[in-house]
Structure formats: C-alpha cells, structure tokens
C-alpha cells in the first residue's frame, strides 16, 4: 500500500481528466498529496524548482499523460530518465492512446505500467483502485 505521505504527481492537460483522477482518488479515499502539472515543461519545472516551488521530497509516483502540449509525455520521460535526481521515480502512463507505437515508446523508458484511459468513470475508478491496491513495496 502506498504510504499516505508520499506525493503523487499527475501530468495532465485535460481538466476533466484531472477531475476524473481527483474524483477517483477521493472515491478511493486516497489522501496523498497530489501535484498537478498541466504540461511536461511545468512538471519538470516543479520537480526541479525552476521558477516555482520545488516539489520536495520528489513524488513517489507520476501519472503521465502522453498527449501533452509543448512537450510530449515521451519527451518528458526522456528528460526525466536522464536526470540523476529524478530518474528513479515510478511512472504510470495514463493515456487515451492504444497505439502500439506509443506503448513501445513508453516501455522503452521503463515505465511501471501503461493504462489506456477507460471510457467510463466507473471503469477508471476501478482501475485506479486496482493500481493503488496492487502497489506493494
């Protein structure tokens, strides 16, 4: 079970999707601090403290959307994996793309899971619950 004080960062540009995640967390009574970045660039700035408050300690999990403005999820992954400080953060890709291409690209950067966003909230809720429940270590 995920420690309740471990931060979780959500990188997602769609407000409804952000709301979906927040709602699902709420429904599953997950109270871990949730940092929300709207773009990959924002996320990096937050993680490194460039021009804004640094997320410290770094989050234990990042939920990453792939289709992001300015910097795609894959680019973000690349940058993150090159950063000594941040390279070990667990990442779960949460995307609407079911393309094999995206899947391959993501696993190249050793993501922990790749989840296609379910169409209904109920399903999404279930998925979040499952992920967090299954989280050991």
């Amino acid at each position: 079970m995920l420690d309740s004080d471990v931060g979780i960062m959500l990188i997602e540009d769609d407000r409804v999707d952000v709301m979906t995640v927040q709602r699902a967390f709420k429904k599953n009574r997950i109270n871990n601090p949730l940092y929300i970045a709207r773009t990959g660039v924002d996320a990096l700035d937050m993680l490194k403290g460039n021009g804004q408050e640094k997320v410290d300690p770094p989050p234990g999990l990042i939920l990453l959307d792939l289709n992001l403005p300015r910097m795609s999820g894959i680019e973000f992954l690349e940058r993150l994996r090159q950063d000594r400080e941040l390279q070990n953060i667990r990442i779960i890709v949460l995307t609407s793309s079911n393309e094999p291409r995206d899947r391959e690209a993501a696993f190249k950067y050793e993501v922990d899971d790749y989840i296609v966003k379910p169409h209904s909230f109920e399903e999404f809720n279930r998925v979040i619950a499952t992920i967090l429940a299954c989280w050991d270590d």
Binding site: V16, M19, T20, S96, F121
Partner: peptide, 9 residues
C-alpha cells in the same frame, strides 16, 4: 475520444 470521454464522465 478525450472530449467524448469527458462528456461521458
């Protein structure tokens, strides 16, 4: 699909 999903949600 994203807006559709949003509508559904």
């Amino acid at each position: 699909k994203a807006p559709l999903r949003a509508i559904a949600n």
